[in-house]
Amino acid sequence: MKPSLRKVLISGGRGLIGMRLSEMLIDAGYEVAHLSRQTSHGHYCSFRWDPATGQIDEAAIRYADFIVNLAGASVSEGKWTEERKQDIMASRVGGTNLLARELREKEHHVKAFISASAIGVYGDADDRLLTEDTPPAPADDFLADVSTQWERAAQQVQELGIRTVITRIGIVLSDEGGALPTIARPVKLGAGVVLGSGRQYMSWVHIDDACRLIIQTMEDAEWQGTYNVVAPNPVTNKEFTATLADVLHRPLVLPKVPEFGLKLVMGEMSEIVLASQRVSAQKIMAQGFQFEYPQLRGALESFYQKEEE
């Protein structure tokens, strides 16, 4: 890559992946700017935008050599009221549409557009192995519908002739946020529990591997199209919980939380933990990506080993 191509614009830069990705890009010698609805944005240069009203700083797109599009309201915070569901959808599709509009209408030198999606696009698929060629689940599955529409919005950029990569991201493991601290909290208290049947597959990825992959797709022009961003060894919920308990040196003492109980407490949002997705990492490995954390135990130990010493 030419040394001059070093400016990365990130939407969703304050999110879990966005913050870690920003750190790793800075360490690798890139300049990083965030798109933000707020004026002040911590350590990073920021450009104002508001996807809800279609407004964006005109200098934002002109700044970028690469755009990484991660923006989206959290799916795991708060119950899925109709208003919340609209926010989840609009924050992803609206932001992506806005970036596509700017790239279509304004002068720019963007070389690649990396856009997030999620393995939720596959729906609840039991133990079937899911590849990038697996059709999306029907639109009556909310998470699948969100991911499908998010990807369609990103494909507008591809139609402009800009190299576009869509990353279907699995359950991101980090001790800074996301699913892992929530799952680990009861385990640390000796109250770890298997959710639902425990047979549902969890396709996970260590946050550093997810960020390294995003950087590789940015830097290498061979990457184009849709990729699953998951580790090569998905596990069942029962295996995940047992491995986590073992790493934390805690017992698993409570019975399973039945599916009807989760649905009662979480409503529709229970599909986040009950849906089974056994997702293949074969395509990214065939393209040359090497995982630092291919196994769950090693990934969990990277967060909790020091804590237990």
Rank of each mutant, 00 (worst) to 15 (best):
M1I: 08
K2H: 12
P3L: 15
G12K: 07
R14F: 13
R20P: 05
R20H: 13
M24D: 14
M24F: 10
Y30I: 02
R37D: 00
S40W: 08
H41G: 05
Y44R: 09
S46W: 04
G54T: 08
A59E: 15
R62E: 14
F66N: 05
I67E: 08
V75D: 00
W80A: 09
W80K: 06
W80P: 07
E82C: 02
E83D: 10
Q86Y: 05
I88E: 01
R92I: 04
G95H: 00
T96Q: 02
E105A: 04
H108I: 04
H109R: 14
A116K: 01
A118T: 12
A125L: 08
A125V: 07
D127Q: 11
L129C: 10
L130G: 05
P135Y: 11
P138R: 07
F142A: 00
F142T: 00
D145I: 01
T148W: 13
Q149R: 15
A154V: 02
Q156I: 04
E159G: 15
I171R: 00
I171D: 00
L173T: 03
S174I: 02
D175Q: 12
A179K: 07
L189A: 11
A191P: 00
Q200L: 05
W204R: 05
I207Q: 08
I207N: 04
I207Y: 03
L213T: 03
E222M: 06
W223V: 06
Q224V: 14
Y227Q: 03
E239W: 03
L244G: 01
A245P: 08
V247T: 09
L248C: 01
L252T: 09
L252S: 07
V253C: 11
L264Q: 05
M269W: 07
S270H: 05
S270W: 03
E271G: 01
S280N: 12
A281V: 05
R297Q: 14
S302A: 11
Y304R: 03
